[in-house]
């Protein structure tokens, strides 16, 4: 069971409080109705699915109930950083340094 830091509650809580919500930073196109079939398919079905750092969405369902984003290594399942929905992708080098500091 993962331990996940909710960026709103500012607390690490067990995974069962959270719901994974798929890849992050895939914004719904404002003009969705005018997408081509191909574009819609890419938006709705195609995913990076990286082996390594993934950017993903979580919802603190049994907590503050808010959605947030996380950068996580899919090989080790370790979180690099979590951050509120709507924020840009963070600088992962900085996040790694922060983590290293926290670990000592």
């Amino acid at each position: 069971m993962l331990l996940i830091h909710c960026p709103y509650c500012e607390e690490a809580r067990p995974e069962i409080e959270f719901r994974h919500a798929g890849e992050a930073h895939i914004a719904r196109p404002a003009d969705i109705a005018s997408l081509t079939d191909e574009e819609f398919s890419r938006f709705f079905f195609y995913r990076d699915n990286p082996k390594g750092i993934t950017f993903e969405r979580w919802r603190h369902l049994h907590g503050c109930a808010r959605f947030f984003n996380a950068a996580r290594d899919t090989v080790t399942d370790k979180f690099l950083v979590t951050y509120p929905a709507g924020e840009a992708k963070p600088d992962l080098v900085e996040a790694a340094n922060e983590n290293a500091k926290g670990a000592t």
């Binding site: 719901r19 914004a27 719904r28 919802r59 369902l61 109930a65 959605f67 929905a85 709507g86």
Partner: peptide
């Protein structure tokens, strides 16, 4: 509710 919250919080904040 999850579906609505998702859109409200992340697409139409």
């Amino acid at each position: 509710l999850n579906h609505m919250e998702d859109y409200l919080q992340t697409e139409f904040p």
